[in-house]
Design a protein around this nucleic acid. Structure first.
Lengths: 152, 152
DNA sequence: GAAAATTGAATTGTACACAATTTAATTTTG
DNA sequence: CAAAATTAAATTGTGTACAATTCAATTTTC
């Protein structure tokens, strides 16, 4: 008599978290050579995406959008500034806040980036539809993850 | 006449990669307090999962399983060693390789970890079925991402 | 309106990631 | 079998992540 093996919930291949972690790093790895051509790292690219969408945000607003804190963003933004892509300027009306703005070079970089999404989609062999579904499923997961457990 | 807005492939919310990146970090964030109780970080937990499954792997073998290189693993494993959870021993038959083995404490930690998967599933409000589907979809994505483009 | 609380960046410290180099050990090859 | 090539870890250097603290600026509150 053959016995079914005990389902082991600690097996690596069972883990959703590892599948996520591995997928995220793999995808970042595909971006790397594409972004290297623009002189950007992947998190820097994300910051640029946000600024291309809406220029002139504070560090805090960027952080809310990307779910990153100042400990990550401050040095990253200093590097983008050194690269001549953004300016960092304390607000005059509230000197606690620092405005991040694209320089002309930062704005110009957008054109060089415009092919990246199509390039990635093609590389990953995903239809637009499949990508959207997976993306939205992941967004739901993130939503759930960030909904704190109710404890009154 | 209303015009459809140009679909902008550079919008952050369109990006599968950001959904992945954000989801991965969110999930890690949920593990953090659970793992803190075991004195582990998330990547350390992954190493322990592999070793609980198969004890006595080399750094290289661990790296293949987790897709991490020695630059990441060497210091991480030294920390696990300092914590008394693993031993690091050069092989006698091939002195280039370093065997990583669980200590009794490392083996014992497995029991404390055994509830984590169920705890996570409950926290994320996912059925086992949903988790499996998403996990397998992500594995496929990783597969594709790691299949090099053909260039003879 | 001054003390207390809050807020926004920056800083500090720890721990990954990952490319590139180094070093030592082992294989392969002529 | 010795030189050349390969392999496995470790090391070095850069760039995130993120908790915790600090510091200055602004609000709130009494």
């Amino acid at each position: 008599m053959k016995r079914k093996p005990t389902p082991d919930h600690l097996l690596l291949d069972q883990q959703l978290c590892f599948a996520l972690y591995a997928a995220s790093r793999s995808i970042t790895g595909i971006y790397r050579p594409l972004l290297e051509a623009l002189g950007l790292t992947y998190p820097q690219y994300l910051v640029m995406l946000v600024l291309w969408e809406q220029d002139g945000l504070t560090v805090r607003e960027l952080g809310q959008r990307l779910q990153l804190d100042s400990g990550t963003l401050t040095p990253l933004l200093k590097r983008l500034q050194s690269a001549g892509l953004v300016s960092r300027q304390r607000r005059t009306d509230d000197e606690r806040a620092v405005d991040i703005r694209l320089t002309p070079a930062g704005r110009a970089l957008r054109e060089q980036a415009s092919d990246i999404p199509a390039c990635m989609a093609q590389r990953l062999q995903l239809s637009l539809d499949q990508m959207q579904r997976l993306r939205d499923e992941l967004k739901r997961l993130t939503q759930h993850a960030q909904t704190p457990t109710i404890e009154d």
